[in-house]
Design a protein around this nucleic acid. Structure first.
Lengths: 137, 137
DNA sequence: TTAAAATCTATAAAAACTATAGGGTAATAG
DNA sequence: CTATTACCCTATAGTTTTTATAGATTTTAA
């Protein structure tokens, strides 16, 4: 299951990208427009800022804004930041690899074999979608 | 993340499929061979039986055994029983569809658009893999 | 027929994760 | 200086996952 964190984060990014302007947009406005719990969204936007997707401005007239062009924001990057590993199992993860404690040999593991394919196919999708691709009605 | 339930279930099925015989195999043997908590495995095997993948025999000489040929067991079916929906979001699920409460229009939803592609690519993988495909070393 | 070997059932507890809320701090514009 | 708004920390309720406990039931073999 996709976490709401990821879902909300994607929606927020899409909303910001859909706007003409790149002026700061208040959390409250995003939350209201996308039906998101404002406090929760707050923490999501923060991690998006910390990971180089958004800029922010404090005080009156402050808010969040896209720091890159939508065409340059790949879903692989967004997903890794919001949802974590793309692989469903650590032993097939590119960026978060970890050996399974119980599995003596990955090359003979059926789970490994299947999840490797799933990872590759998901990666293919995420790699071929930018934020811009998700906006077009 | 793939749940351990699914992981263990897959390993158990693979182990049974890898054996020459289709005689009953005790839970204890499967658990030991695959490094799985026996009691947990017990409940997993039970749901696999209830869903038509395994047969069982009680009493001395009892155990679990494959009820179909490995070539006839599709990963789509296994995953749906063990892991649940293949889609990461209910609004793109074929078998477990549900409308998002917050989303006014699915056709304009960026999450929907992305997750639809992810579902399709995962489905493609699961459809083209049978239990037999996961055994071959 | 009895005892042993298994599966079956139910429950619950521990752990981990998810989603949300509250309240205070810091920066900024006017 | 004051209002506004992002930032940051903490807590908590709820859910899901995983494992453990305890026993009931069925089957087989001797």
């Amino acid at each position: 299951m996709l976490s709401k964190k990821t879902k909300y984060g994607l929606k927020a990014l899409t909303y910001l990208a859909s706007l003409e302007t790149r002026e700061p947009v208040q959390i409250a406005e995003i939350a209201k427009h996308e039906n998101i719990s404002q406090k929760f969204l707050e923490s999501i936007l923060l991690t998006l800022r910390r990971n180089g997707f958004l800029g922010s401005k404090k005080g009156k007239g402050g808010g969040y804004y896209l720091i890159k062009e939508p065409e340059d924001i790949l879903m692989t990057a967004v997903m890794r930041v919001l949802e974590g590993p793309i692989a469903m199992v650590p032993c097939v993860s590119l960026n978060f690899y970890e050996k399974c404690a119980d599995c003596p040999d990955e090359n003979k593991c059926s789970v490994n074999k299947l999840m490797l394919q799933v990872r590759d196919s998901a990666l293919e999708v995420y790699r071929s979608n930018t934020l811009a691709d998700l906006i077009a009605s």
